[in-house]
């Protein structure tokens, strides 16, 4: 047991940290969902056994590496391959037929984290002979998760879960067709990798950068407050081609947002919308 007195991060401490991060790095977390941020900050001070808040602010101001580390710690990066198998079943049945009609397929995964979701999508495309005519942009705010995504290397621990997700998602082959095991790590096939472009992009401050047929942004906007969500949705709408499709997380919604009436639902359970003509 530690005798360290734990400090508690409340609203005012969080505001201080948000301000400091903004001043020193330009990253703006002020429109993030407060309850999640509080937990992340709390987790950061707990894990680093920080017992003096003033000192923490001092240290952060003097050490930009520490600020970067804090930023990486407070974004939630949890992800899986074929996470929510039901979504991928739906994608096989309802998205793939739409994509099949296109001469060239452009996809954007916003907030792709360590990339598992992107590789899952690439596998889906491959299984439908669509990978060759696809380009996938995968972006995130966090440089270190992108490094992992780019390497396509994952720990073996999660494999069992991925295999079962794949199976549940009604995958026709074996997940092992798409990776090899090297030095105790899963390594995704080069063929999948070659079709994905990984790059940093901040949904809060950066501009739309291309036009897409499909935008996938799952479990990212739950970390934003309502007004930031609205902005992001508008940017997505702008970035979609005519009849382009937007897929967000199963507990997220574009209802009550400015783009609600500019999109028509494709699947309400898995939150997939199509841009109205």
């Amino acid at each position: 047991m530690t005798t360290n007195t734990r400090i508690t991060i409340g609203d005012s401490e969080a505001e201080e940290l948000i301000m400091l991060i903004n001043d020193y790095s330009g990253y703006d977390f002020s429109d993030y969902s407060m309850p999640s941020l509080l937990r992340r900050f709390q987790r950061y001070v707990d894990m680093n056994k920080i017992s003096d808040f003033k000192q923490l602010l001092q240290d952060l101001m003097n050490d930009s590496a520490m600020i970067n580390n804090l930023i990486e710690e407070i974004t939630v990066n949890v992800t899986e391959m074929f996470r929510d198998p039901g979504f991928f079943i739906c994608a096989r049945k309802e998205l793939i037929p739409i994509l099949k009609e296109l001469p060239l397929i452009k996809i954007w995964h916003a907030g792709c984290s360590t990339g598992e979701e992107v590789y899952s999508m690439a596998i889906l495309l491959k299984e439908n002979d669509l990978l060759d005519k696809s380009i996938i942009y995968a972006t995130d705010i966090n440089q270190s998760v992108l490094d992992i995504a780019r390497s396509g290397k994952y720990s073996l621990e999660a494999l069992k879960e991925y295999e079962s997700n794949y199976w549940e998602s009604e995958g026709p082959a074996k997940l092992s067709d798409y990776y090899s095991i090297v030095n105790g790590k899963i390594v995704m096939n080069d063929e999948l990798k070659s079709k994905i472009i990984f790059s940093t992009h901040n949904l809060v401050s950066d501009h739309p950068f291309n036009q897409f047929d499909l935008i996938v942004c799952r479990n990212v906007v739950i970390y934003f407050n309502k007004s930031l969500q609205d902005n992001v949705f508008q940017m997505f709408h702008k970035s979609l081609n005519e009849k382009g499709v937007l897929a967000i997380g199963s507990q997220e919604t574009i209802m009550f947002s400015p783009i609600e009436h500019k999109m028509e639902p494709l699947n309400t359970k898995w939150k997939i919308w199509k841009k109205k003509a």
């Binding site: 609203d11 969902s33 407060m34 309850p35 999640s36 937990r39 992340r40 987790r43 939630v76 949890v78 479990n219 739950i222 970390y223 997380g249 507990q251």
Partner: peptide
């Protein structure tokens, strides 16, 4: 959140 709004989190 402090106003009673429900927020989901996937950490």
């Amino acid at each position: 959140d402090k106003d009673g709004m429900l927020c989901l989190d996937h950490s």
